[in-house]
Design a protein around this nucleic acid. Structure first.
Length: 843
RNA sequence: GGGAGCUUAGCUCAGCUGGUUCAGAGCAUCUGCCUUACAAGCAGAGGGUCACUGGUUCGAACCCAGUAGCUCCCACCA
């Protein structure tokens, strides 16, 4: 049998993924075992796999595979999100390329196109996840727009409406002029910007000039948005401002449109900003809106839905808002009404989806009353703060708390077609009912007015915010609103793995939905991954071209290598700096493991069964030493898992395999070239190798499955994916000292004498002279403290004899736990005194 | 403007309860090796005032205060 020196992965991956799936190892259904549940953060149907998904889903797969191996009922639910705005935009664009305008289509026809699109492209990202090795239960794949999940959305909406948690109201909201819809506050991204601050002259009216003598030409007002000037309804100054006090109640003329507007006073005004005068445009600014309400001013909306100047503005109608700004500045300058211009820093809101500059707009929309919601469900905050829902890293608790403490009402209606249509109906008289269906709505209307017909009522045109369905995800994927068996068994889920960028959009709202609709938390742990950035710390983006194609990476480095490369540099919450050399490291590691297998598989065994049964002392010691090393690593790895330090866990395994198993253990038991190995030693080596493969399997599923099978001449009864994960055992640190002692001793001898590890080990065993007393003395003293051996047996060979004589040298000294604590206390006291003496001497 | 976090080797980061893992890991670098598992490898080596200043302590990378720089989140300054 001739094996390639380099590990080839492509076929291996395909083979095992198909095998696992065909045997149903990803499948899950309720049974007697303890459940372990993860729901995938559903990617957008429009999405294609990017580096963020790779990282995120690798982590989930590691967690689910470990749980599966630990004998839990592991259930990982995949699915996709309908992504209202993003998908509608894609479909609109696709139709436009075919020469079809959305406005020429009926709602039904448009939705047909959207569904076609979804069926055609919607599953791509899930197929890509399979290449990564994601062991989702694909039979459970859900979609937020499918019937059952839409039904859940309806149920929740109606319940919340009846509980007074949802209301319809007219408020100032965020308007996306490109997406042609309103947005929630969370969907607005504020960006720093250098704006021009224009100082515009508003001439005094004739009346004012007559009333007050000695006035200058007009009031100078600073604004960054001259194009909203046609919507000005007042000028506002601070009531205590000495410069303008006498003008309050007088009027000025709005330039261009020459409308006469009053000068009013409000202490909201910052006297130090600009000239201390504010032009009040209630239709286009939140503060102006408040001032307008307070002073009973009209609101003139001068913009159209797509961000152009409206006819009612009286000038510049049809011009784009930014073109208008330029034009108006030019016109003012010509009229001599532009006093000066200066650059200032400010922030401007952009649409999260379309990146268009957001307009504030007064509009009638649907809202969730968040104040009331939080009053009813205080555990949403409390149980995150007391770690019943634990955040990793926990610094995000602060962010979470801050957001919830300042939460505003959630605008949930969107002026789109692709999404869950709001279950509200209106009649011609302006009445409204909220109902399960059109038929039920009609019944409700008829109870008020018997003559009303189906043709007299119409459903609300708007759909709901995508997150209004996403927040139900952990409940609805298990049909939680129908009280299903799956729901009772798998909910609450265990761990959620997601990015901190959607902590408000999604994580917080799932917690809300969990407590509000099930009375239970939706998950116990939230693991926040970092952003994947390039080497220069720039975000991955299409425009920068610094985002590698994930599937190409998998083809190049293998899914195992890619997974390892990503995980190695991804401590919880830290951004990961993508660097191809990390993936190389992953690939090289695969190769190292592959070659360890080649060694073990190729060793000749003693033909004489009797000789073969006998084991060299050095082999026995090497075996015991590695067992200790292994157990210590397993313990550390479990601790790392519990704290979600996955990269640390992986690094421990990496070092255990490379340094301890390959460089030390295999070198110790490897016979000289051409010589046979004892059967017993070989079988121990195989057992160790097998245990290592299990330990590694959650991280690198494919190569471990391949070698697990290859290691057995006949196929094992169970594949590694469902084998038992190595368990932690209690040990004591002095065992660690012991393990370290042996290795450092071997190294000393090797270096000084130029011998092989095996020869060095023999020397340690056979001579006491060459051994380093210092290394052993400490260990002996500690062992003496534990009554394991008497202190006067202070010789290395005694220590070794003792070690070899006991088969349980790494098994916990259960009976000596108290003594261990005692010994530690004494040791602490000695160190204290030593430190104390040292510092006294120094003085 | 408010809040949170970070600063340890060339890079990315560990360092948990102050003292035997205390100055660490991986990668990168340098020097020797194509040695019969593996050059995608092996054997070695170098490299740090733990941001700065003070304080607490017998003892500080770790606790406290201040300073500087960076990052993120939130916020209605026209």
């Amino acid at each position: 049998m001739e094996l390639d020196k380099h590990y080839l992965h492509a076929e291996v991956e395909q083979k095992w993924y198909a095998y696992w799936q065909s045997k149903g190892y990803f499948d899950s259904k309720p049974d007697q075992r303890e459940p372990y549940t993860i729901v995938i953060p559903p990617p957008n149907v429009t999405g294609v796999l990017h580096m963020g998904h790779m990282l995120n889903n690798t982590i989930q797969d590691v967690l689910i595979r470990k749980a599966r191996m630990e004998g839990k009922n592991a259930c990982w639910v995949p699915g996709t999100d309908h992504a209202s705005i993003a998908t509608e935009a894609k479909v609109v664009k696709m139709l436009a390329e075919q020469g079809i305008q959305k406005k020429d289509l009926s709602r039904e026809d448009f939705l047909k196109h959207a569904w076609d699109w979804t069926h055609k492209y919607g599953g791509i990202i899930l197929e890509q996840l399979k290449k990564l090795g994601a062991s989702c239960d694909w039979k459970r794949t859900r979609f937020t727009m499918e019937d059952d999940l839409s039904q859940a959305v309806n149920t929740v909406f109606i319940k919340m409406f009846r509980d007074g948690l949802i209301y319809r109201g007219t408020k100032m909201v965020n308007w996306d002029p490109k997406g042609l819809t309103t947005l929630s506050d969370e969907e607005v991204i504020y960006k720093e910007n250098i704006a021009q601050l224009y100082y515009i002259v508003y001439p005094f009216s004739e009346q004012t000039k007559q009333a007050i003598s000695g006035l200058s030409e007009g009031l100078i007002i600073a604004t960054t948005r001259p194009e909203t000037l046609m919507g000005d309804v007042a000028i506002c100054v601070h009531p205590d401002d000495e410069r303008y006090k006498h003008l309050i109640g007088q009027t000025v003329l709005v330039p261009i449109v020459n409308r006469e507007v009053p000068i009013i006073a409000d202490d909201y005004i910052d006297q130090a900003f600009g000239t201390g005068c504010l032009k009040v445009t209630p239709a286009h600014d939140e503060n102006d809106y408040r001032i307008g309400e307070k002073h009973h001013l009209e609101a003139i909306d001068v913009l159209t839905e797509d961000g152009k100047i409206h006819e009612r503005a009286g000038a510049y109608a049809g011009l784009d808002r930014f073109a208008c700004r330029k034009q108006i500045v030019k016109d003012l300058e010509e009229k001599g009404l532009l006093s000066k211009t200066e650059a200032i820093k400010n922030t401007i809101g952009h649409s999260e989806r379309t990146d268009a500059v957001i307009e504030k707009k007064i509009s009638t929309q649907w809202f969730v009353n968040m104040q009331l919601f939080m009053q009813k469900h205080p555990e949403v905050l409390d149980h995150v703060m007391d770690d019943q829902i634990a955040f990793h890293p926990n610094k995000f608790k602060n962010t979470y708390k801050h957001w919830l403490s300042n939460i505003k009402d959630w605008n949930i209606s969107r002026q789109l077609w692709w999404g869950h249509r709001i279950p509200a109906w209106y009649d011609n008289q302006g009445h409204m009912v909220v109902a399960e269906s059109e038929a039920e709505a009609l019944l409700q209307f008829q109870s008020l007015n018997a003559t009303i017909q189906l043709k007299d009522i119409r459903q609300d045109d708007d759909v709901l915010d995508t997150w209004f369905s996403s927040w139900l995800w952990p409940i609805s994927v298990f049909d939680g609103f129908k009280d299903s068996e799956d729901f009772k068994y798998y909910y609450p889920t265990n761990d959620l793995v997601t990015g901190p960028d959607i902590i408000f959009f999604w994580v917080a709202r799932m917690v809300m939905a969990g407590y509000a609709f099930t009375g239970q938390k939706p998950f116990s742990n939230v693991y926040f991954t970092g952003l994947v950035r390039d080497k220069q710390r720039r975000k991955m983006s299409k425009s920068l071209g610094n985002s590698p194609e994930p599937l190409e990476l998998i083809a190049q480095f293998g899914a195992d290598g890619t997974r390892m490369g990503l995980l190695l540099s991804a401590p919880a919450g830290n951004d990961i700096l993508y660097d191809e050399s990390q993936l190389e490291q992953g690939r090289n590691f695969c190769n190292k493991i592959w070659n360890a297998y080649r060694l073990i598989a190729g060793l000749p065994v003693h033909e004489d069964a009797l000789v073969s049964a006998e084991q060299l002392a050095s082999d026995k010691l090497a075996h015991q030493w590695f067992e200790m090393k292994f157990q210590l690593a397993v313990n550390a790895i479990h601790e790392d898992f519990n704290a979600f330090r996955l990269s640390d866990a992986l690094m421990s395994i990496y070092k255990l395999i490379w340094d301890d198993f390959c460089s030390s253990y295999l070198e110790m038991v490897k016979p000289p070239f051409g010589q046979p190995i004892a059967e017993s030693t070989l079988s121990q080596a195989k057992d160790h190798f097998e245990a290592l493969l299990k330990l590694l399997h959650p991280f690198m599923p494919f190569i471990t499955e391949e070698l697990y099978h290859a290691l057995h001449d006949s196929h094992p009864e169970q594949p590694i994916i469902v084998s038992a994960y190595p368990k932690p055992h209690q040990t004591h640190t002095l065992i660690n000292d012991l393990a370290l002692g042996i290795v450092s001793e071997i190294r000393n001898i090797r270096n000084s004498k130029g011998l092989s590890p095996k020869q060095s080990l023999d020397i340690i065993i056979n001579t006491s002279v060459s051994a380093n007393y210092q290394v052993w003395e400490g260990i002996l003293r500690k062992l003496a403290n534990l009554n394991q051996i008497s202190y006067n047996q202070q010789k290395p060979e005694h220590c070794l004899t003792f070690l070899i004589s006991t088969d349980e040298c790494f098994i916990p000294f259960e009976s000596q736990i108290d003594q261990v604590a005692e010994a530690k206390k004494i040791a602490d006291e000695i160190t204290y005194l030593q430190g104390f003496l040292k510092s006294v001497e120094a003085k």
